[in-house]
Design a protein around this nucleic acid. Structure first.
Lengths: 285, 285
DNA sequence: GTTCCGCATGAATCGATAG
DNA sequence: ACTATCGATTCATGCGGAA
């Protein structure tokens, strides 16, 4: 495995069952895993239509492989949401979290993806579901995290603009440093930028894609910027239409995508080729 | 129990341990429970400071009483959020949900309270926590729900978040508003109202001199309007500063509040008296 | 009366220090 | 080794005073 220093396993999309393919990946080679596995009872023809009651048992062996290939300072981000079964939320996601903890994973955080535009619909006993879980798991308490890479503009523009007087003084100071380049970047950013919270407010990707399970590229992009550096390897064992892989490539990371279903695999390959035309974004990290 | 047709148990705030007081409440008399119990290990100086590992065992007997006093078509809304212990999210809330299901409760839905203004702070391994769970439990699949009572004007909604909604989505929503369910009500509402989703975007109440209520009145108000009618009985076994009781009274519902801590009890009584000066809001339901 | 700014205030968490 | 306490960090909000 990993002939040519692992080159075979970088920037490729593989067609097959991740339960088998992952066995070929060497230990501790992946920096970040971002994936959205098939939800229970959906995509019946691919992974056999996992029943909610069997979901944990199905996922655990895969998670064991993920543990093996992930570097000790790496992160595993799992995008998932439980279905409604017989009028109530099925507990398989809760049970999965508990099972993953027993497997050794640390449940570091639960991010919320708040979907700006969620699917329309009306039911007598519930409203439209406009959020999903993005569960963060780690192998140890210390892991790579680059908070500056995902800073957002401060909420109130008026406030910061009205403080221009005090800011200009500081900018003069900065202009001296400006020739020095680089060192004060984070300080300079800090003026107008603030750290985000654990709620991501993103729109779903609607329409043009033929892939129905809309996963906006911003979502994996956010976690890739936050938990990896340029040149790192990002794994998605359920690549789908390739959104995570594309996001990784555009951010200058290497990717490894695995997709079992031919149709999605072809689509992901085409999407990745289109993305290859887009230049890599040079971010801070 | 319930002398004078239960009058003794309506529109009162009781000072004591809900584990004891609830035993005096008759079976199936409460229409809605909205509560925010002390979080594990927080409020140490006020409540016992329940250790996370002991939280489920502490809560289950109370939940059994809640089951008994709740009407079969009633709803139990539990506002809670797990804290970080030793660098990871503690699983006691997940375990509580599973335990409540074993007790017979249906876990109908998980609403998200997205706090506009969350506590400050910066840590190397996580961002600020800006959301809490509002877990909805029921005794049976059929329960009271009045969706029209919490509809939101599309105008304001569009103003604040318009950009990312496609026009077709909005049209779809609007068309659903007029169709079916509610007869006169929906006609009167017209086309400028839309149903909310399962994410509530509210600010915490801070800067209030008299008390530190982390719980904005809008939060219980929303659930009270959604899951009860005028004249119904709303129970809060952890009344705190009385926010749920006040919300219930202002909406024309009866309340029953229980608070163990003298200090909070006095405060809640004072707050309720202030609220008595405010006229009852005559809403649709 | 308005509008605008200043300031205190959180259901927090981490790492270091002390017993 | 294990627990207890303390300081540092940070931002949306709403009130009160000021222009």
């Amino acid at each position: 495995m990993f002939e040519n220093g692992g080159a075979r396993w970088r920037n490729v999309l593989l067609n097959g069952d991740c339960r088998e393919i992952l066995q070929g990946v060497a230990d501790e080679t992946v920096n970040l895993i971002v994936t959205s596995p098939p939800y229970a009872d959906s995509r019946k023809n691919t992974y056999g239509g996992i029943h909610p009651d069997a979901y944990v048992a199905w996922f655990l062996p895969i998670a064991a492989q993920l543990w093996r290939v992930l570097r000790s300072d790496g992160t595993f981000v799992l995008n998932i949401k439980e279905k409604v079964v017989d009028g109530e939320r099925h507990p398989y996601v809760l049970e999965l979290i508990l099972a993953l903890r027993r497997q050794g994973w640390l449940w570091t955080e639960e991010y919320i993806w708040h979907k700006k535009n969620c699917a329309p619909g009306k039911w007598p006993n519930r409203f439209r579901d406009s959020w999903e879980r993005c569960l963060q798991f780690n192998k140890q308490k210390q892991f790579k995290m680059f908070q500056e890479a995902v800073m957002v503009p401060t909420g109130d523009w008026a406030k910061s603009r009205l403080k221009n007087l005090s800011e200009t003084d500081q900018r003069r100071d900065n202009s001296r440093v400006g020739s020095g380049f680089g060192k004060n970047v984070s300080n300079w950013m800090g003026r107008d930028m603030a750290y985000p919270t654990n709620v991501l407010h993103l729109a779903t990707e609607c329409g043009n894609k033929s892939h129905s399970a809309a996963f906006p590229r911003e979502l994996p992009s956010w976690f890739i910027k936050l938990f990896s550096e340029q040149g790192d390897l990002v794994l998605d064992p359920f690549a789908g239409s390739g959104t995570t892989c594309i996001a990784a490539r555009l951010l200058g990371r290497d990717y490894l995508g695995i997709e079992i279903k031919d149709e999605y695999f072809q689509l992901a390959q085409a999407n990745l080729q289109d993305a290859a035309a887009i230049p890599v974004q040079r971010t801070l990290l």
